[in-house]
C-alpha cells in the first residue's frame, strides 16, 4: 500500500517532468497563438468539443492542452530552481552553524529566527510588486525565502555527525576543513534533506500559482498554471474547464510530490522534518 503510493507519486512527478521536457514536440498548437474565432471551445469530451483542441481553448482562443504542457515547464522550473537556490542557502548556513558551533552557530540561529518571523506571502508579494514580475524574479524571491527548513534540518544532522569518530579521524589525518565539510559531513546528511527538498518543491509550486493568481507571478502570456486559473476565473460559470483543468493538474502534481517525499522518508529511514 505504502509502496504503491510512493510509486504513484514517482510516476506523477516523472510524467509531469516528461511533459515539461517534451512540450515543444508534443504540443498540438503554439501555446501563444490566439484565434479569436475559436474562443472558449469546450474540451473534446464535452458538447461542442472537437479533436482539434482536445482540452478546448481559453478566452483568447489559445489551445488549452498546449498551454497546459508548457505550463508544466514553468511549474517544474519554479520547483527545481527554487529548491536548488534555497537548498544552497539553507544547507550552507545549517552545516556551518552545526559544524562550527559557538558564535557562528548563534549567528546562524539568529538568521533563521529572522527568516521565520517574516510573513512569507506578504514579502513575496511586496518584492514582486516592487521589482516587477518575471520568471527569474519569482524563482529568486521564493529561493531566498524557502530555505529555513533546509537550514534547520542540516544544522541538527550536522551536529550529530560532527561528533562521530570518523570526523575526528579525518581531522587527525590532516584533512582540510573544506574536505571535512564537503566529503565527510555533507554526504552523510543528505538523506533527510531529500525529503525536505520534496516538501519545499511542492510549496514553491503552490506559491508560484498563488502569486500568479494574484497577478504577481510569472507575467502573461507565459502559460503558468496559476495564471491560467486567474485568467479563467471570469469565465468559470459558463466554461468551468478553464479553471478545472489547470486546477486538477496543480493538485495532482503537488500530491505526487508529497507522496514521493513521504515514501522516500520511509525508504531512507529519515525522521520527518518539521
Amino acid at each position: 500500500m505504502k509502496h504503491a503510493a510512493t510509486s504513484l507519486g514517482a510516476l506523477i512527478v516523472f510524467a509531469v517532468l516528461l511533459a515539461a521536457v517534451v512540450a515543444p514536440l508534443v504540443a498540438p498548437h503554439d501555446p501563444f497563438v490566439q484565434d479569436l474565432n475559436q474562443r472558449l471551445v469546450p474540451p473534446e469530451w464535452m458538447d461542442g468539443g472537437s479533436a482539434v483542441h482536445p482540452f478546448g481553448t481559453d478566452q483568447l482562443g489559445r489551445d488549452y492542452l498546449s498551454r497546459l504542457l508548457y505550463g508544466a515547464r514553468i511549474s517544474m522550473m519554479i520547483g527545481i530552481f527554487t529548491v536548488v537556490t534555497s537548498g544552497l542557502i539553507g544547507i550552507t548556513l545549517g552545516v556551518f552553524g552545526g559544524y562550527f558551533g559557538g558564535k557562528i552557530d548563534e549567528v546562524v540561529m539568529f538568521i533563521i529566527t529572522c527568516r521565520l518571523s517574516i510573513p512569507l506571502i506578504l514579502v513575496a508579494l511586496t518584492v514582486v510588486a516592487l521589482i516587477g514580475s518575471s520568471l527569474l524574479v519569482v524563482i529568486l524571491t521564493l529561493g531566498l525565502l524557502l530555505w529555513e527548513r533546509f537550514a534547520v534540518v542540516s544544522r541538527t544532522t550536522t551536529m550529530q555527525v560532527r561528533n562521530l569518530d570518523y570526523i575526528a579521524a579525518a581531522q587527525a589525518a590532516g584533512a582540510s576543513r573544506r574536505h571535512i565539510l564537503l566529503r565527510e559531513v555533507l554526504p552523510n546528511i543528505l538523506t533527510p534533506l531529500v525529503v525536505v527538498a520534496t516538501l519545499e518543491m511542492a510549496l514553491a509550486i503552490l506559491l508560484e500559482a498563488a502569486l500568479s493568481f494574484l497577478g504577481l507571478g510569472v507575467p502573461p502570456p507565459l502559460p503558468s498554471w496559476g495564471l491560467m486559473i486567474a485568467e479563467g476565473k471570469d469565465y468559470m460559470f459558463f466554461s468551468p474547464w478553464v479553471i478545472m483543468i489547470p486546477g486538477i493538474a496543480l493538485f495532482v502534481l503537488v500530491l505526487g510530490i508529497n507522496l514521493l517525499g513521504d515514501g522516500l522518508r520511509d525508504l531512507l529511514g529519515a525522521a520527518r522534518p518539521t
Binding site: 569518530d165 570518523y166 587527525a172 589525518a173 566529503r183 565527510e184
Partner: peptide
C-alpha cells in the same frame, strides 16, 4: 601521530 578509536562502526565514513 594518528588515532584508532573504539567503535569501528562510527569511525569509518559510511559513504566512502
Amino acid at each position: 601521530i594518528q588515532p584508532v578509536f573504539q567503535d569501528p562502526f562510527s569511525s569509518l565514513n559510511p559513504r566512502q
